[in-house]
């Protein structure tokens, strides 16, 4: 869900503004205003998981190989992971367009 999906009228807004579907923040696309994205250099990565811990949007998941991969549906491009990575394995690159 992007913010634009949340656009409802006063007649259709939920009763009391309640969120009736549990855990629906998982479908909220926090990545729609990203201006740069993290790119991982697997050569440098030691799989310590610092990026996973520090990401404020919990965008990282561990792959089967043990690397951490960010989900661009959630990544807002803040660069915290790149800043925290002890091996400088993450580079922030500008989004095209």
């Amino acid at each position: 869900m992007a913010k634009s999906d949340a656009i409802v009228g006063w007649k259709t807004i939920t009763f009391g503004c309640h969120v009736l579907e549990p855990g629906n923040t998982a479908s909220f696309r926090t990545g729609d205003w990203r201006s740069q994205r993290p790119v991982l250099d697997k050569e440098k990565c030691i799989k310590c998981g610092m990026c996973y811990i520090f990401c404020p949007d919990m965008a990282y998941d561990q792959t089967e190989e043990g690397y951490y991969e960010c989900n661009l549906f959630y990544c807002k491009g803040c660069g915290i992971c790149a800043h925290e990575c002890p091996k400088n394995a993450i580079t922030m690159v500008p989004e095209e367009g």
Partner: peptide, 30 residues
């Protein structure tokens, strides 16, 4: 109509971004 119940979880009192705040207030007025 709705209540806080762990067996049927809902959230009350979320943020109202500018896209929905007006509608929430108009719903109250009505």
């Amino acid at each position: 109509r709705y209540k806080l119940d762990p067996r049927k979880p809902i959230s009350m009192g979320p943020v109202g971004v500018p896209e929905v705040y007006t509608e929430a207030k108009v719903a109250l007025d009505n």
